[in-house]
Design a protein around this nucleic acid. Structure first.
Lengths: 235, 235
DNA sequence: GCAAAAGTGTTTTCACTACACCCATGA
DNA sequence: TCATGGGTGTAGTGAAAACACTTTTGC
């Protein structure tokens, strides 16, 4: 109660606005980057494809709001989540004047998650098959895709997109799919090994070849050391 | 009136919040990057140093709000202005729950502008002499400074910070001051000339030496071509 | 034994670094 | 004539690019 009083003492002459958070959720599966979309549950544009989001209440931090949306619809906690951009045109939403603060996140698409996701009338789309979206959500997605590519230069995003144990060919395919061009596999290995942020395990993944590919793990300690020095993660 | 009706049809169950824009204004003068700060005019924290900003009205785009603040307090229009980040912790402002969308901008500090600025109880501070600021404004500034350095990698920010005609030593000093370290002047020239985005003029600036330094202009056409290809502007 | 994916080295090329001296001019 | 800032070239180093063959093994 005291808080309430404190918080309403000033600025009383100014008009308030609706504020929402929306999330662009990326995942990686079958050698492709994917995007999680939802059937919108409210008017206007009910049942059209949309990002997931909700209104921010006066009692929660905006990041908290984004992270709780994520948890509610995917069951995931503590995953990569970063603010992208705030959309604030007057008529961006015909339903009302709404400021939308957009976050993007990176997840591993796995079986558990799929079940939660199916419950909410949602679907993973490959990046080249994204349907028309409500409001300015397509613009949000395209900004997020650009940001994602930028992000690869400062951060080894494989950490969040691949399973804990992964093979070199998997990592290689991830980067090819992200950059949308062919890379040289030998140079790729050299570059990655030069970074020295992977631990090679004594196990092999034999699902995709007879020979089998060695499994690796990210070494988060070494990664954090590099990050402090401002390492350049470009491939 | 029709608009009003349209805009209030949906989402009526949700609580609204105060939304503000704040601007981090950078300038360059006397070989130093500077920051424009203002004495806060409202309670709480009246008369403390602060970024400039104001509340967003329901009838204006957020970018419009940021750009009009800038115009009101510096007299400048059409200058570099980009969204930085949105701050939205519940208690970031003890005056009330306020979402703050922060923009940053780059300007040329010139005599005209100075007069407008003096009128508003404001002052340019060198980056290493920034006083304590109200609320979370110091965090905003430090985020803006990091962004500024990032930005130099994708954009020749000299365009917005230097006068239209400038000398190589001026540009060189700007980058040294931005990166806060000594650079090699010969390598710097080579790099810049390699980019091929400057036009060398047939005039010299003799204010700082007897020999005089050639003046250059940015060639915006060539710059835009490079930008499309995703050129790397790192020094 | 062969198909299919995994894994490995060398040479070339190019960009970045380091480094020191001459030039033009006003006072 | 000299002090001051402006301007230039070259050799060395290291990272990135280009490029093709061998290994493993389930079928």
């Amino acid at each position: 109660m005291l808080e309430e009083v404190q918080l309403s003492t000033f600025y009383t002459d100014n008009e308030k606005l609706l504020v929402a958070v929306d999330s662009v959720i990326f995942g990686y599966e079958d050698g492709q980057m994917k995007l999680l979309l939802f059937k919108r549950k409210i008017e206007p544009f009910k049942d059209k494809w949309s990002l997931i989001g909700r209104f921010v209440s006066p009692k929660e931090d905006i990041r908290e709001a984004a992270s709780s949306v994520l948890y509610d619809y995917t069951g995931l906690k503590n995953i990569f989540l970063e603010q992208l951009f705030t959309f604030g045109k007057v008529f961006r939403d015909p339903g009302s004047r709404v400021i939308s603060i957009v976050y993007y996140s990176l997840t591993r698409i796995n079986d558990f998650e799929k079940k939660v996701v199916e419950k909410y009338d949602s679907k993973w789309f490959s990046l080249n098959e994204i349907p028309e979206l409500v409001l300015d959500h397509s613009e949000m997605v395209s900004k997020a895709r650009m940001k994602l590519i930028e992000k690869t230069q400062q951060y080894p995003i494989g950490i969040d997109l691949l399973p804990e144990k992964f093979t070199m060919p998997q990592l290689f395919n991830l980067y090819q799919s992200l950059y949308d061009r062919k890379l040289d596999d030998r140079n790729f290995r050299k570059k990655i090994e030069g970074m020295n942020i992977l631990k090679k395990l004594n196990e092999k993944d034999k699902r995709t070849s007879k020979k089998g590919a060695f499994l690796y793990k990210f070494d988060k300690k070494k990664y954090n050391q590099l990050l402090k020095k401002g390492y350049d993660f470009r491939i």
